[in-house]
Design a protein around this nucleic acid. Sequence first.
DNA 1: CTTTGTGAAATCCTTCACAGCG
DNA 2: CGCTGTGAAGGATTTCACAAAG
Lengths: 220, 220
Amino acid sequence: MRHRRIPEATVARLPLYLQALVTASDQGTETISSGGLARASGVNSAIVRKDLSHLGAFGTRGVGYRVDELVDEVSEVLGLSQDRAVVIVGIGNLGRALAAYDGFDRRGFRIVGLLDADRSKHGSELEGRVIEPVDQLEQIVRERSVTIAVLATPAEHAQQVADRLVAAGITGLLNFAPVHLDCPDHVSVRNVDLSTELQILSFYEQLAAAEPSPGAASTG
Amino acid sequence: MRHRRIPEATVARLPLYLQALVTASDQGTETISSGGLARASGVNSAIVRKDLSHLGAFGTRGVGYRVDELVDEVSEVLGLSQDRAVVIVGIGNLGRALAAYDGFDRRGFRIVGLLDADRSKHGSELEGRVIEPVDQLEQIVRERSVTIAVLATPAEHAQQVADRLVAAGITGLLNFAPVHLDCPDHVSVRNVDLSTELQILSFYEQLAAAEPSPGAASTG
DNA sequence: CTTTGTGAAATCCTTCACAGCG
DNA sequence: CGCTGTGAAGGATTTCACAAAG
């Protein structure tokens, strides 16, 4: 079943598989079965097989999948072979933590700009990069071929910054501000909201106070 | 259709509605239609109506929903009326940012402990709280009635810390470490992983390089 | 005339179960 | 034998569309 139209649910799981696969590879494991990968990723083994069949990865019956081969295959499908220029807008507590996060480079995401509206922050260094004025957003996005932006501004400015980013040509947006962003269809938006997650946990806590075991897991 | 068995997908959207509702309330809006709430939350209006019908909230036909009433109703269902004690384990860059995040208190999540394994951090202050040794995890969880833990440790320690938290009685876990945590069914786990989100964005970027508009949105 | 609440249809996702290959 | 790959069944979620209420 080679090729395209990979279901959204599958796409959301590929990064989890990749994590497990890289770990397995680091430990010297050469092959892994759908059951093994399933256990390591917290899903059902039939799902693993179906997901992998969507990308045409062929395992060996009676054996499993070659770890290295799968790492390559999944990376390829996720587009991790080419590297992508990323800007972070909003260098508060969270923005600072994100700038320091080493998971960016490790998978081909190159941070090429740290922008903030606060004049007093301009010019100061962070992780070897200078903080630049958000006024220059458009030039920076164009000149540095930025395709993905991380939004860590206060909620009240998020939409207008998003509009400018989109107008400047960004097509992927990772939004940490606790607001819904209205963006054109050609832009992919992923939202990460602490307070949303806590509230979901709260709901299941509340349930457990009466009934037996629920449980919940989410997009990483 | 009063009461229980609220679908998981609905639960995941309630915090979004709440956000939109609080914003509307702050602006003095008294009633809101399913369409209005849908636009503000980025979903379809039929979904809003079905979701709200699950919690038995009654709107007024021809008018919509009373904003204040809905805020109360949704908060109640999410269990936000009682406040919950939270610990953050792992006070690195991310942990520090989380400790400073003001969204915790605003909805009844009280941070009652900041724990780290690094001896040199113990005793230092952060946001008015002292950083304590992770060795005391069990006592802290029990004595301060902690039910939710935020895990911001390095990936390699996450599972063992999770095991200890669970053993100590935690039932909700917000995991920022990029690993799958194996926890008993009675514990709810939500994963937040930057690198996963970036990879999902990367996939859709890659698609757009050939075809027309996809798009993706996620649990906040 | 507007907007809710909801059955019924459509779509998407997961799980089962097994044929068939190595 | 063990394990993949996949049709078919089973669930869950979303969307449609409309009757009924204010």
